[in-house]
């Protein structure tokens, strides 16, 4: 069944229309990739679904697992099972990764009526996910993303995803700023955490290379605020060869 259903979504950022009637449906168990030229609205789509202030929806709808995503506050969307992987993860001085993630996980559990995870159980989970992404567990004691390299920030995002265990992950250019080895580690992490019959992923990327590791079931081209073409994995290869201009024109 459809996990994420977006119908005719339109929005404005600072009074300027960006998404102009975008429709997309993602079933549980599927991995979709959205590609497209700069300024097409890819990150805007991610932020709009995440509920970032300033990304005002002007029309259409979006549901996650049948629930109205757009009616929820950002923290409620997370508790409903949405995870947003940031292109530029934010640094938060003075707040440790462990403190931040434990608070996040327990806030989500609380809103779902589940018991909070104890300190010990949380640390065990966090170490396990850090190991999966080959991230030094000592980094979890450091302030959120502060002093992390570009690659460490992206791997830390995937560790967060592993700990929070979402239904749907929207990963905004997770591959940018990664070297070849880190790209492979992140790709394998995404597969290990999210390649499940009850989960789905929306990958936003400019390049084919991440898709070598995380094989999409569907590829979409976003241009001018709409999906202009959809296809299988071969579409990404075609784009890589011919560029966007030929396809979008």
């Amino acid at each position: 069944m459809s996990l994420l259903t977006i119908t005719d979504l339109a929005n404005e950022v600072a009074g300027k229309p960006i998404l102009k009637g975008l429709s997309l449906s993602i079933n549980a168990g599927e991995i979709h990739a959205i590609m497209g030229p700069n300024g097409a609205g890819k990150s805007t789509l991610a932020y709009t679904l995440g509920g970032r202030p300033g990304y005002d929806v002007t029309g259409g709808s979006a549901t996650l697992d049948g629930r109205d995503l757009l009616a929820m506050a950002p923290h409620e969307r997370a508790a409903a099972g949405l995870f947003l992987g940031f292109q530029y993860p934010v640094e938060i001085p003075g707040v440790s990764m462990v403190q931040f993630l434990r608070e996040a996980l327990n806030a989500q559990r609380k809103s779902r009526g589940e018991e909070p995870l104890s300190g010990g159980a949380f640390l065990k989970l966090a170490r396990e996910k850090a190991a999966l992404l080959k991230l030094d567990p000592d980094m979890l004691k450091r302030p959120v993303n502060v002093g992390f390299s570009g690659g460490e920030k992206k791997r830390a995002e995937m560790v967060q995803m592993g700990i929070l265990d979402p239904k749907l992950a929207i990963l905004d250019e997770t591959d940018s700023g990664l070297d070849i080895d880190a790209l492979k580690v992140c790709g394998e992490g995404i597969n290990a955490i999210m390649r499940r019959p009850d989960k789905a992923v929306l990958l936003i990327t400019h390049y084919q290379r991440l898709l070598d590791y995380v094989k999409p079931d569907f590829v979409h081209v976003l241009a001018g605020g709409r999906i202009v073409r959809s296809g299988g994995p071969e579409l990404a290869l075609e784009l890589e060869e011919q560029g966007y201009e030929a396809l979008v024109a």
Binding site: H75, A78, A107
Partner: peptide, 25 residues
């Protein structure tokens, strides 16, 4: 920082707790 507040919210932390976390630090 509004970016930081949204980042915390995107992980499931309610606004008041997110503010408290940042201000405590």
């Amino acid at each position: 920082d509004a970016n930081a507040l949204f980042y915390l919210a995107s992980r499931g932390i309610p606004p008041i707790s997110a503010k408290a976390l940042m201000l405590q630090a």
